[in-house]
Structures are given as structure tokens and as C-alpha cells.
């Protein structure tokens, strides 16, 4: 079913918030240089799942995980794995654009500086590359010292993508990246995702099925914390095996 090398794999993953089980026995493989979409109605655990991959759920109190989430052949929940280093390799773009209250330049240089890059020319180069890769360079190359908060919502989101690229991750997680954006900005981000998969492995959570159909190679359908169906996007959308998948895709619920 899968031709490319597997980059991220979850095996029998369970997650509890206190007593409430939010994810039940999730097993999926996410191949290298492909886009894997995770769809499902709100509250189905899709955001929770994607936040497991870079251990963002560590920030939530009373959150407990069992099972395995493999990245580079190691379980990311293993005691020896440093969540901070993990997040350097697995970047994330959030639902609501969250630029830092500083200049555009400093936003992008934030990650590299964090990880020890001090050289001005090197930073300049990283910033330019990141902005070019996120298709933002020609729009804002002359106002890098402006506050990032002055950008439009769509530009802010692409800035957040650029910021993630600057750290040179292997995987980028997108958590409903377009839900706060207008259709034109959404189209730009979707194009961008299509280009980025040449260099990165991408996992995207979306509640927009057309978006999943347009950008992804593989699709996983979640319902009530369980994985209902996983396969090639084309197959999921054209001939789903499960009834509930078909109902969801054809808009009968959710």
C-alpha cells in the first residue's frame, strides 16, 4: 500500500485526559515526503493525535499516553527522548496564526537563534530561504523589520510556516492551518503545502474534506477517538470501505 519509507508511525496509541480516553488504539503510518490528512468531526481526537507526534500534549496536565509513536525508529514517548529536541525535528503550524510580538525577521530567526546560530550572514540567509520557501519573500522582503502583528492573517500564517522551516525540521504538522483564513489565503497555503512535500513529510489535520482531497496523498478518518479508516486519499474519497466514512465524506453528519 505504501511505497515511500515510513517517517512517523503510531502503533496502538492510547491517550487519556484524566479519566477520559481521547484516543483509542490508533495505528497509522505516515510516509516520507507525502501529505497525510487526518479528518473527522470536531471532538474526534484528530488535533489530539497530531499534538502527540511532537509531544505538545506534554503541556496539558493530567494527560497520559500509552502505546508507541515511532519517529526515526524510536518511541517519542520513551524516557530517553528529549521533547525539546524532538520538536526541533517535528515542526508545527497552528490553527490560529501565532506570530511572536516582534519583527518579521526576529520571528523567523527565533528558532535558529534558539539553537545556537548567531552569525548575522547565516541568519540573513536562513530568513531569506525560509521566506522564499513559504512564498512570502516577494511580498515582504523590504519590510523585514516591521512588526509581524501588522501582517494580514494569511501572511501571518505563512510567516508561521516560514518560522517552522527555518528550524529545518523533517516533519511539519499542520493543525487546521486554514480554519481562520479567507479562501484566497487558504489557496495559497494549500499550494505551499503541495510544494513543501518535496522536502518534508507533512501531516495535516483539517475539518475541510475538499482540502483533504486536494492536498493529501493519504487520509485517516477519525471518529470518537478511534481510527475508522486509513488509506490512499483517492481510495478513501472514491470508494470508502466503511459506512461511517462514506456518510461523513458525503456530508451526512459532522
Amino acid at each position: 500500500m505504501v511505497e515511500n519509507k515510513i517517517e512517523v508511525e503510531s502503533r496502538g496509541l492510547n491517550l487519556w485526559y484524566g479519566d477520559m480516553q481521547a484516543l483509542k488504539d490508533i495505528t497509522i503510518t505516515m510516509p516520507e515526503n507525502k501529505v497525510t490528512a487526518i479528518i473527522g468531526p470536531s471532538g474526534c481526537g484528530k488535533s489530539t493525535f497530531i499534538r502527540c507526534i511532537n509531544r505538545m500534549n506534554d503541556l496539558i496536565k493530567d494527560c497520559r499516553v500509552t502505546g508507541e509513536l515511532l519517529f526515526e525508529g524510536r518511541n517519542v514517548y520513551d524516557k530517553s527522548v528529549d521533547a525539546v529536541l524532538l520538536r526541533k525535528k517535528i515542526g508545527m503550524v497552528f490553527q490560529k496564526p501565532n506570530p511572536f510580538p516582534m519583527s518579521i525577521y526576529d520571528n523567523i530567526a527565533y528558532g535558529p537563534r534558539l539553537h545556537g546560530t548567531r552569525n548575522k550572514e547565516e541568519l540573513d540567509r536562513i530568513v531569506e530561504d525560509a521566506l522564499k520557501s513559504s512564498a512570502l519573500w516577494h511580498e515582504i522582503h523590504d519590510k523585514l523589520d516591521r512588526s509581524a502583528l501588522d501582517l494580514s492573517g494569511g501572511q501571518q500564517q505563512r510567516l508561521c510556516i516560514a518560522r517552522t522551516l527555518a528550524v529545518k525540521p523533517k516533519v511539519i504538522l499542520f493543525d487546521e492551518p486554514c480554519s481562520a483564513l479567507d479562501p484566497i489565503s487558504t489557496a495559497k497555503i494549500e499550494d505551499l503545502i503541495g510544494n513543501l512535500k518535496r522536502d518534508y513529510t507533512i501531516v495535516i489535520v483539517t475539518h475541510n474534506m475538499q482540502q483533504a482531497a486536494r492536498v493529501s496523498d493519504y487520509t485517516a478518518f477519525f471518529l470518537l477517538g478511534e481510527l475508522v479508516e486509513f488509506g490512499k486519499t483517492k481510495q478513501i474519497f472514491e470508494m470508502p470501505e466503511k459506512k461511517s466514512t462514506e456518510d461523513y465524506i458525503t456530508g451526512r453528519f459532522g
Binding site: 511532537n54 505538545m56 503541556l59 525539546v84 529536541l85 524532538l86 520538536r87 526541533k88 525535528k89 515542526g91 508545527m92 497552528f94 501565532n98 506570530p99 511572536f100 527565533y110 528558532g111 534558539l114 539553537h115 508561521c160 518560522r163 517552522t164 528550524v167
Partner: peptide, 9 residues
């Protein structure tokens, strides 16, 4: 905060 953590801070 999340944005910063996600960059490996």
C-alpha cells in the same frame, strides 16, 4: 507559547 515550544524552545 505553543508556537515557541513547537520550534524546540
Amino acid at each position: 507559547r505553543e508556537g515557541s515550544f513547537a520550534l524546540g524552545a
